[in-house]
C-alpha cells in the first residue's frame, strides 16, 4: 500500500541523506556513532531470516541486504574520518556519551517477555524492534546537548522518524484490508514515533517555517 511504500522510501532517503552528510562534510560532525552501531545490530538481528531462505519477495530481500550493507558502510565511513579528521572524530566521541547499556539491557528483557515464539529467530526479531524503537536516543541526546545541528543531520533524523510514523497508517490499512494486527510492531512503532514527536515539532517550526535549527 501507499503508506508502506512511502515509509520504505523515506527510510531509503534517510540513509542517502546520512551518506551524503558524511561525504559532503568529510567528517562525522553531529552524527552519533552509538546510534549508527545500534542500527547495525538492529538490522543484523531483524533480518536473520535471510539465512533461512524463506524469502517473502525480491523487494524485501533486496531492501534487507541494502539496510544491512549501508548500516555497516556508514560505520566504515565514520572510521575513515577517524584517520582523516581525528580532531573532529574525537570531538564527536566526546559528545556521544549516551550509555547504550540502558537501551540494550531493557530491549533484551522486553524481547524475552514479548515475542511471538521462544525461538532464536523470533527472540532476535523482537529484540530488534524494541531496540530500533529507542536506537535514535543517543543521536537525539547528542543533538540536545550541543543545541545545534547541521541541516542535513536534521533532514536525516526527520526522514528516519517519518519512516516509522508512516508505518502506522500502513498498519491501520492492513488491519482493515487483511485483518492483520501485528501487536509488537505496532506498539514499538508507536513508541518510536513518540520519541520523535518533540523533534518533529521543532523541525516543523524551525526548518519548514525557516530559521536555524536549535534544540532546547
Amino acid at each position: 500500500n501507499i503508506f508502506r511504500i512511502s515509509a520504505d522510501l523515506s527510510h531509503l532517503a534517510s540513509i542517502v541523506i546520512l551518506l551524503e552528510t558524511i561525504r559532503k562534510t568529510r567528517q562525522v560532525d553531529g552524527i552519533s556513532l552509538k546510534t549508527q552501531l545500534l542500527y547495525v545490530l538492529v538490522f543484523c538481528t531483524r533480518y536473520l531470516d535471510l539465512l533461512t531462505f524463506r524469502w517473502t519477495s525480491l523487494y524485501n530481500t533486496l531492501m534487507k541486504f541494502f539496510f544491512i550493507g549501508t548500516s555497516i558502510y556508514v560505520i566504515k565511513l565514520m572510521q575513515e574520518c577517524k584517520i582523516k579528521n581525528p580532531v573532529a572524530y574525537k570531538d564527536m566521541m566526546a559528545r556521544d556519551t549516551f550509555q547504550i547499556k540502558y537501551l540494550l539491557g531493557p530491549s533484551a528483557i522486553l524481547a524475552m517477555v514479548f515475542n511471538y515464539k521462544f525461538t532464536i529467530l523470533e527472540l532476535c526479531w523482537s529484540f530488534s524492534v524494541w531496540l530500533e524503537s529507542v536506537a535514535i536516543l543517543p543521536q537525539l541526546f547528542m543533538l540536545s546537548r550541543s543545541g545545534k545541528a547541521g541541516t542535513l543531520t536534521t533532514h536525516y533524523i526527520f526522514a528516519l522518524g517519518l519512516y516509522r510514523a508512516l508505518y502506522i497508517p500502513n498498519w491501520i490499512w492492513r488491519y482493515y484490508t487483511e485483518n492483520r494486527f501485528e501487536k509488537l510492531s505496532i506498539f514499538t512503532g508507536l513508541l518510536q514515533t513518540a520519541l520523535y514527536s518533540d523533534f518533529f515539532y521543532i523541525y516543523y517550526k524551525k526548518v519548514i517555517k525557516g530559521g536555524g535549527f536549535e534544540l532546547p
Binding site: 508502506r4 520504505d8 527510510h11 531483524r46 531470516d49 517473502t56 519477495s57 524485501n60 531492501m63 534487507k64 539496510f67 511471538y116 515464539k117 526479531w125 508505518y167 500502513n170 501485528e182 501487536k183 510492531s185
Partner: peptide
C-alpha cells in the same frame, strides 16, 4: 495465528 506472524515488513 499470532504464533506464526509473517514478518513481511522491514
Amino acid at each position: 495465528s499470532q504464533n506464526e506472524v509473517e514478518h513481511d515488513e522491514l
